[in-house]
Amino acid sequence: MLPQVFFAYFAIVTIALSLIIITRKNPVHSVLWMLVLFFHIAGLYLFLNAEFIAAVQVILYAGAVLVLFLFVIMMLNLKEELSSERFIGEWPIGVALGLSILLFVFFSISKFIAGPSGEFTIERILKETHTKAIGKVLYTEYILPFEVASLILLIAIVGAIVLAKKRT
């Protein structure tokens, strides 16, 4: 019973936070609510025996990405933003589209069939600790994608600098 209750709490809060995020007029508020949302999602990850991912989620998203967002928002003119319309004119169409997709996905969920189970049972992960298990897989089987990902980050850094730099 207890897990269901916890899940219900997290589910309700994340949904509510998501709705709040997309409706705030002030972007700063959106970003701050986003922070709360990320913590809740990290909590859900803990539920799912993914401690390492939960940590990454907090450090990377909450610590790095959101700070970046905040910096950028501070550079912009907020006064104008607060006085202008927050939704586009055709917003009912967007909402209708979103709702209809949601509806069909819900109807389709019952058709979901789980595939065959892998070898990393909860007991095994608990025994060899989650970080170690992930590390082993990441640095052996997925070493090439991992290196590619690091290159992507490098390119992103260079790209961001080039784009944001003042033209002289």
Partner: peptide
């Protein structure tokens, strides 16, 4: 794009 997603989902359904 969202409409395309909608079409795909409904086709799956």
């Amino acid at each position: 794009m969202a409409f395309g997603l909608f079409v795909i989902v409904s086709l799956v359904f």
